[in-house]
Write a protein that binds this DNA or RNA. Structure first.
Lengths: 206, 206
DNA sequence: GTGATACGAGACGGTTCCGTATCGGAAAGT
DNA sequence: ACTTTCCGATACGGAACCGTCTCGTATCAC
């Protein structure tokens, strides 16, 4: 929701002139995402460059957002996409599902570029990081934790470990691969291998 | 090693005028690191700002480096600090050592800020990422892998898993905590908990 | 139609940074 | 003493971007 849309729902239902173009809204948000994906970096983003990329006049951007910060906050909000529910049969399969979705969508080109951009600016743009975290990370983390808790209740997961830590044991390796092996694709089957590796442990079982 | 020092070892051993100030060298590199640590972001770094932060004239920077790219490459090279050898008693203790050093130094304030900055620009500055990777990441990864291979040979580590993947099982959780839980400190004892968690596995052993 | 508002384009003055050049003074060799 | 090079400071023209404003045109309610 843009600032303008929020304000349009106010006390003035009578829209009198030419209405704002929804296509322009989309073009601007898409342009920001394309630029971030291209590795442009939050503080190298320019309103001028965004308008250019969107094929839009600068005034059209400033008519909707007061500045770069407000625009970026709204862009973060468009990323919302609550994670699919999980099938709930075996905990192991649910974990594989979660990591497989992370592999295919969460850490695919665009999303991983945005993740990088956000993590690198959390310090200089804490508000922006907060919005990204709340919109993108929180729901997925909650889902993972609920699966783990169910696993603990059913005896499929050790109950003597912190849920936070357990979640990181599963998420971390995928993240590590995506961030440190920057240009390599995340190979098919990685989700299964991580889940089974973490479940069974690195020490041999006799 | 700065470009100037490299070139000074060339065919001209006769240094005739006032020698370059080593203090200025250090001040400039330190300034870059301080700015990165402050969350400034690679493409928001300006030569002008660097000189200002270092308390140095712009010409003093340009006398040493041809531009921002060359300077940043050299800054990456100063990060070299080959990891301490590992005690080599039990594989479990070695793994704890490695992760504990990662917690205390590798992901402490300055170093994690630089890691964030690099991962977010690997796409737009591949040369810079390469240098960072070679200087900072490679040696530590090699050490970790050698420890894991020793563990496999001694039967302390499963031999049916890929060493790459195994390494990520240990590194990933620490990385995940440092990058996604941006402002939280990495708590004491985290290294032990990760290593033991991964070694034993998330599934209960009976 | 008429009035209101949005559109893309871009002019505008102000700021910051670029990379180069020049300054007077400092620190080394000869 | 004299030369050479470095030092910090700062001036320079050029570029990019800021946020505002003004064009001429397009699209809506009335």
């Amino acid at each position: 929701m843009t600032e303008s849309e929020a304000e349009a729902r106010g006390a003035r239902p009578a829209a009198r002139g030419r209405p704002r173009s929804a296509a322009a809204d989309r073009a601007i948000v898409e342009a920001v995402l394309r630029l971030l994906e291209r590795g442009v970096g939050v503080d190298a983003l320019s309103m001028e460059g965004i308008a250019r990329e969107a094929g839009v006049g600068k005034a059209t951007v400033y008519r909707r957002w007061s500045g770069k910060d407000a625009l970026l906050l709204d862009v973060m909000r468009t990323l919302e996409e609550p994670p699919d529910e999980v099938r709930g049969e075996s905990v192991r399969d649910d974990l594989v599902d979660i990591l497989e979705r992370l592999r295919q969508r969460g850490l695919a080109k665009r999303n991983s570029a945005i993740l990088r951009a956000m993590t690198s600016h959390f310090h200089s743009h804490p508000r922006l990081w907060q919005e990204y975290h709340d919109t993108v990370i929180r729901a997925r983390r909650d889902l993972l934790h609920s699966v783990l808790r169910r696993g603990m209740a059913r005896g499929e997961i050790r109950a003597d470990l912190d849920v936070e830590l357990l979640g990181e044991l599963f998420i971390g390796p995928m993240l590590s691969r995506a961030l440190l092996r920057a240009w390599a694709e995340l190979p098919e089957g990685l989700a299964e291998r991580i889940v089974d590796g973490v479940l069974e442990g690195a020490r041999p079982r006799e």
